[in-house]
């Protein structure tokens, strides 16, 4: 798989923090349903999973990348 062209990044500084907080706390997929027990601090039970969503293909590529020599990036799920 070829590497995508690097994109100039501006994700530091006070405005970047404010923009990130706007998005992380107010946007993002909301999966309300019988299986969702808490969103943004509205707690219902004491055991759960923090979840992010992606496709099987994406994870397979990540697993392949993880099997390659390390590039110094942290890929732990949070």
């Amino acid at each position: 798989m070829s590497e995508p062209e690097p994109v100039p990044s501006c994700t530091t500084g006070e405005i970047a923090v404010a923009d990130l907080l706007d998005r992380v706390l107010h946007k993002g997929l909301v999966l309300w349903g019988e299986a969702t027990i808490s969103v943004a601090g509205v707690d219902l039970v004491y055991l759960g999973l923090k979840v992010l969503l992606t496709s099987t293909d994406t994870v397979n590529r990540m697993r392949e990348a993880a099997a390659s020599p390390p590039d110094g990036r942290n890929h732990h799920a949070g």
């Binding site: 299986a35 808490s38 969103v39 999973l49 979840v51």
Partner: peptide
Amino acid sequence: PLRFGTLTE
């Protein structure tokens, strides 16, 4: 990305 703080049972 799911909304921050999303938990499932």
